[in-house]
């Protein structure tokens, strides 16, 4: 029974952390954008503008709720709900750190250590498109529909290359699909990124595309499609869309850290766990994971404020003609090397 209590608390904490990080990602995005453009960014709400996300949230809640007359009412409401739901569901399989210990019992910092963890993330990601598609279609607006169609075709295209680069990871980590196993196999500095640099690059690009971030933010490109799939949305339903996107970014960063940068592993972890109490080491390992995650969130923003948007045909060409063949070649080479050298 205790384990259920612990898992419930973990789920709640993860929920709050996801929301908190998403909220402060919006703040960080504006700050990073400002700093990269020699500006200061929001600094009026609270010290250094730290209360800005709260002000934004209050604004979102107080805005007028508009449901277009000719829209499909239920689907219109369902869209952002699905998007938010799938965004929050992904964090269930991620190992957040070494197990905590209370009264001699170990509690793994992972909600569900299922043996298909990686596939679960892929599955939830692919279901997330429905939120965008349903929302975009139900708006009964051509820009929203165009945005929805762009989003779905983009996500389907980049999922393939993403899956292929994940397969290379599975090949070098004993074929286990469990994320905790993949993280454990990267002890010390034995990170997958050193064995799979090409796979990492492909995965990173695909993660950008899956999270709808610049240079792949065509589904919501402001200059051509007004707001893309959320053109007709207002108030907190728009907030859900925007929020879920930031949660997606957070989860993408976490998955990148877990698959390629050793998750909570860091050099010297073995030494620390031999000399320090288990709980302290556990907290340090959580800190290590979050350091990596924050770096990648910053990287996402850094790229956004550097590179302009792709054209849509360029995006499709990149996905199908460059990334997919490259990832298949990467997979074949990885498999060949493993078989040839009997690793």
């Amino acid at each position: 029974m205790e384990i259920i209590l612990f898992k419930t608390i973990l789920v709640l904490v993860l929920f709050l952390i996801s929301l908190g990080i998403a909220a402060y990602s919006t703040y960080a995005e504006r700050k990073v954008a400002a700093f990269l453009q020699d500006r200061i960014g929001p600094d009026r709400a609270g010290p250094f503008g730290l209360l800005q996300p709260i002000a934004d949230g209050v604004k979102m809640f107080l805005k007028e709720e508009i449901i277009p007359n000719h829209s499909n009412r239920w689907l219109f409401i369902l869209g952002p709900c699905i998007f938010m739901l799938t965004a929050l569901m992904t964090s269930a399989v991620i190992p957040w750190g070494l197990p905590l210990e209370f009264d001699g019992t170990k509690y793994a910092l992972q909600v569900a250590d299922i043996n298909i963890g990686v596939l679960y993330i892929m599955g939830v990601l692919s279901v997330g498109v429905y939120g965008i598609m349903i929302g975009g279609w139900a708006s009964n607006n051509k820009y929203a529909l165009l945005g929805a169609i762009r989003a779905s075709s983009q996500m389907i295209s980049y999922e393939l290359a993403m899956g292929m680069s994940i397969i290379s990871i599975l090949l070098i980590s004993d074929g286990s699909l469990s994320l905790s196993h993949i993280v454990e196999s990267q002890k010390g500095m034995n990170w997958n990124v050193f064995y799979q640099p090409l796979g990492f690059l492909i995965f990173l690009i695909c993660a950008f595309a899956e999270a709808n971030r610049t240079p792949f933010d065509l589904p919501e490109s402001e200059s051509e499609l007004i707001g893309g799939y959320h053109t007709e949305y207002s108030s907190m339903k728009l907030g859900l869309f925007l929020f879920a996107e930031y949660i997606n970014m957070f989860i993408s960063s976490t998955v990148i850290s877990c698959l390629y940068f050793g998750g909570y592993q860091f050099p010297g972890l073995a030494y620390l766990s031999a000399h320090l109490p288990a709980n302290v080491v556990s907290i340090i390992s959580i800190g290590a994971l979050f350091t990596k995650v924050f770096f990648f969130i910053f990287f996402f923003m850094w790229v956004r404020w550097t590179i302009p948007r792709f054209r849509y045909d360029q995006l499709m060409r990149l996905g199908w003609q460059v990334l997919l063949p490259l990832s298949i070649a990467n997979m074949l080479i990885t498999g060949g090397v493993i078989t040839f050298f009997n690793l």
Binding site: F35, D38, R39, I307
Partner: peptide, 21 residues
């Protein structure tokens, strides 16, 4: 080219800000 662009933007992170409060 992308890497060069990233270097340029990261340099701006440490430049003097043009904004007056």
């Amino acid at each position: 080219a992308i890497f060069q662009g990233l270097i340029i933007t990261i340099k701006h992170l440490f430049k003097k800000k043009a904004t007056l409060r």
